[in-house]
Amino acid sequence: MNWGEFFAMKGYGFYVWGSYGVALLIFIIEIALVRHKRIITLQQLRLLRDAENEE
């Protein structure tokens, strides 16, 4: 079996890789969003603290 045949999935390549591709994309986006949320949350906490210190 060569790679071309493997990716063709006997004609079902679009359906099989469309399934796994979108699932992988969703996982990557979710991980990026959670990381981004942590950075933003920490930034906000520091801003709030600095604002309180200035008062």
Binding site: F27, E30, I31, V34, R35, K37, R38, T41, L42, Q44, L45, R46, L48, R49
Partner: peptide, 30 residues
Amino acid sequence: YAIAITLARVRSIILERERNTQWVDELPEV
């Protein structure tokens, strides 16, 4: 995966909702 991503997400939620507490102020990352 679900456990890892949920735990990572809940950490930000905890920080947001506990932001007025002393332990959050004392965290090194804050």
